[in-house]
Each structure stands twice: as structure tokens, then as C-alpha cells.
Lab assay of single mutants.
Amino acid sequence: EVTIKANLIFANGSTQTAEFKGTFEKATSEAYAYADTLKKDNGEYTVDVADKGYTLNAKFAG
């Protein structure tokens, strides 16, 4: 089991951190699915991958 950390950075400057656990593939998929649920209210996002894929920095356009 691994933990994927998602740093969510919103256009207004606020941030949120979420963690997803499971296999690498499952946890990564859940992190992206969570970011997708936030698109409606926060706009499209881009992701910078860090820490060999164990940290995802998602920046929302607003």
C-alpha cells in the first residue's frame, strides 16, 4: 500500500491537502478523480508530479 498526497492549489490562493491510499494505480486514480469533482466550481487544473509520482500538485485555474 502506498499513499499519494494531493496538494490542491486554488485560484484564490487557498490550498487543501488530501491523501489517497491503496496500490499506486488506485491511489493515483482516486486523486485525479477527486480533482475532477472540484473542476465544476474551481475550473480546469494542471498537475505537476513530484516525489516520483507520490505527490501531485494540482493548480486550479479558477
Rank of each mutant, 00 (worst) to 15 (best):
E1V: 13
V2Y: 05
V2I: 10
T3A: 05
I4T: 01
I4Y: 01
K5Y: 11
K5N: 06
K5T: 15
K5S: 07
K5W: 09
A6V: 15
L8N: 00
L8K: 00
L8V: 08
L8Q: 01
I9F: 13
I9C: 11
F10I: 03
A11L: 07
A11S: 10
A11C: 12
N12A: 05
G13S: 05
G13V: 02
S14T: 14
T15F: 12
T15N: 07
T15H: 10
T15V: 14
T15E: 07
T15Y: 11
Q16P: 00
Q16N: 08
Q16E: 13
Q16F: 14
Q16S: 11
Q16D: 08
T17Q: 11
A18N: 08
A18S: 08
A18D: 04
A18G: 04
E19S: 11
E19N: 09
E19F: 15
E19G: 04
F20Y: 06
F20A: 01
F20I: 01
K21I: 11
G22Q: 01
T23L: 08
T23Q: 07
T23R: 06
T23G: 06
T23W: 05
T23S: 11
E25Y: 09
K26P: 01
K26W: 11
K26S: 13
K26D: 12
K26C: 12
A27D: 02
T28E: 05
T28P: 01
T28R: 08
T28C: 12
S29A: 15
S29Y: 12
E30Y: 08
E30T: 06
E30L: 14
A31R: 00
A31F: 15
A31S: 04
Y32P: 01
A33K: 12
A33C: 08
Y34K: 01
Y34H: 06
Y34R: 03
Y34M: 06
A35Y: 15
A35S: 04
D36S: 05
D36P: 00
D36Q: 07
D36T: 05
D36W: 00
D36R: 00
D36K: 04
D36L: 05
T37R: 12
T37P: 00
T37I: 10
L38Y: 15
L38M: 12
L38R: 06
L38K: 08
L38Q: 07
K39Q: 07
K39Y: 05
K40A: 13
K40Q: 11
K40V: 11
D41L: 13
N42E: 11
N42I: 05
N42D: 04
G43H: 02
G43S: 02
G43D: 02
G43R: 00
E44F: 10
E44I: 09
E44Q: 10
E44V: 09
Y45K: 00
Y45T: 00
Y45C: 04
T46G: 04
T46Q: 09
T46Y: 09
T46M: 09
T46W: 10
T46H: 10
V47K: 02
V49Y: 09
A50P: 03
A50W: 09
D51P: 00
D51F: 03
D51K: 01
D51V: 01
D51W: 01
K52T: 08
G53I: 01
Y54M: 11
Y54N: 06
Y54F: 14
T55E: 06
T55K: 04
T55A: 04
T55Q: 07
L56F: 10
L56Y: 02
L56S: 03
L56E: 04
N57P: 03
N57H: 09
N57I: 14
N57E: 07
A58E: 05
A58M: 15
A58L: 15
A58S: 04
K59T: 15
K59H: 15
K59P: 05
F60A: 02
F60C: 04
F60S: 00
A61Y: 13
G62W: 07
G62E: 07
G62S: 08
